[in-house]
Design a protein around this nucleic acid. Structure first.
Lengths: 300, 300
DNA sequence: TGACTTATACTCAATATGAGCATAAATGGC
DNA sequence: GCCATTTATGCTCATATTGAGTATAAGTCA
């Protein structure tokens, strides 16, 4: 009765260059880095950590388990066993001159509502989904699915855009047959690069998790350089979440939570008035490490 | 290089009887129900679902993956492979006359700050932790660990109790050698029943997850009967989170979010003035299923 | 009847939040 | 130097949310 399983560890390694969130890939951007759990790994997280550090040479800060699933498409022919994939979200800092990094929004253009490209992509999706729903047999089903489209893609201003529903939006597009992974011919698919297996799905899970995390936990700082201006921090938050932030309110919240302290240095090349540099005060925070962060993420 | 793995599915099946949260166990409360992933299971969640429904006869509502880990203590002697455990949180409704249900707080008395027993247990823990910290060599380490005790167990009113840190508190007690699972003799251990393997740890993870979920998602209703009074709902929330709620504010928030609608019936046996009965309006919610819940959980 | 319990409606002060105004201090072009 | 432009930073203000309490209604039980 006991079936033999192969365990695959999949990492969504994320960094930010400038203010563009990026993900580490292999196979020309078609796959996430992954490898089998080996007997030398002392734990699952140790396996991921060892594996990622071997690949990138960078130490990883935050590592977090995402999800475990049995991959349907990849039954192991040799052993009759199944493939179990355990996915992780890992964060790292800078990465000068490394290969394999791709922009998040190459895979999910519609998740970047800040950019023109993102908005164009959303407008196209709205039309395609409308067409998909229109082709349905039952009227009740039409209404139900259109409601789903409306709430997930914030169609028609009746409902606000929720930046954490990355996975649900991808799944809707998959169901609607609008992504290449669902067998859609490229010319009729929604914009955005596809990936092998269900790796784009895993990336969506990671994005959703990170967008949720940065709201309540000071994990953004894992992605920031040692010293940064408040605008740099804001830009990173905005690029991760894909939405705009009210500048003054953002500063107010960051300051009053005492998440950061001044380094004493000044950044001169801001393009305007020079800005104070800050660092994350992790030392102070470690004592009360379980307090949350609250960061205001609002609409444009 | 490929190692053979055995996959075990572990379920933390939770229900509420009256206003006491309970967990389904086997082996006289010493283990969580668990079983191997079988080749007939079409997916991991299907495996858990089929398995739990076979055990309890109840349909399960909400099922959610908790965590996957490699169990260190249980290397499979036969195949040289490792044991991988995938744990799930499952919610179900009533369960009259079934065996195997145990109170949450039999395992974690200190998590129930509402009860006298819980407060007594916390007072004892405070003394034991104080003793543990005092016995440390380095002064810096003493300070660091005491800080940790203070913030996790809200010692001394400087920091508020955080009901979601169930796992971190258990891990601290484990590190301090104050639980039976860590090899502590029963007479010197903290009150609370132990479990085999790391099942108490998994239960802690589930409790933490559920406490976090009920804040933002309308999952409480999975545990409620069809019709209920607002006080019943409040009592369930309080028992799950282990803290008190301000009655009037709780009602205000529930009502203004339109999570529930009146059934038109009246509950007469309240012990006081009769109360209106409500039901969860899931139908209405399904349309906008991605909106959150906000429930005020405060201190006594 | 009166003590006690629960239900329910309101009030009020303290914060938190969203949006904007105003000023400071740099840049570059003329 | 002067001015438009950019970013930084401090401050105000209306509104919404939250925590806590008062008041009253409508039952039970002794």
């Amino acid at each position: 009765m006991t079936t033999h399983m192969m365990i695959e560890l999949i990492a969504v390694l994320t960094a930010v260059r400038g203010d563009v969130p990026q993900v580490m890939t292999i196979d020309h951007g078609r796959q996430l880095p992954s490898g089998p759990l080996e007997s030398t790994h002392r734990s699952l997280q140790a396996g991921v950590r060892a594996w990622v550090e071997r690949q990138t040479g960078h130490p990883i800060g935050h590592v977090e388990q995402l999800y475990t699933f049995a991959d349907h498409d990849r039954i192991l022919a040799t052993t009759q066993g199944r493939m179990i994939a355990i996915s992780y979200l890992a964060l790292t800092r800078s990465h000068a001159g490394e290969t394999g990094w791709r922009d998040w929004y190459d895979y999910f253009p519609w998740e970047n509502c800040k950019s023109d490209e993102g908005r164009a992509s959303l407008a196209l999706i709205e039309r395609l989904l409308c067409h998909w729903v229109a082709g349905m047999g039952h009227a009740a089903e039409r209404v139900r699915q259109w409601q789903r489209c409306v709430s997930l893609f914030a169609i028609g201003d009746m409902v606000a855009w929720n930046d954490e529903l990355v996975l649900q939006r991808y799944e809707l597009l998959y169901e609607a047959g609008l992504v290449a992974e669902a067998g859609c011919p490229p010319d009729r698919a929604v914009p955005g690069q596809s990936m092998h297996h269900d790796h784009r799905r895993i990336l969506a899970t990671a994005m959703a998790r990170l967008r949720a995390r940065i709201r309540y936990r000071p994990v953004v700082f894992e992605l920031m350089p040692e010293a940064f201006t408040l605008l740099q921090l804001q830009r990173v938050m905005e690029s991760l979440s894909g939405v705009h932030v009210h500048k003054q309110n953002f500063r107010r919240l960051i300051m009053q939570q005492q998440l950061v302290e001044e380094t004493g240095e000044i950044e001169e090349r801001t393009g305007g008035r020079p800005a104070r540099l800050f660092r994350f005060c992790g030392e102070v925070r470690q004592a009360r490490q379980f307090v949350g962060t609250k960061i205001p993420l609002v609409q444009p």
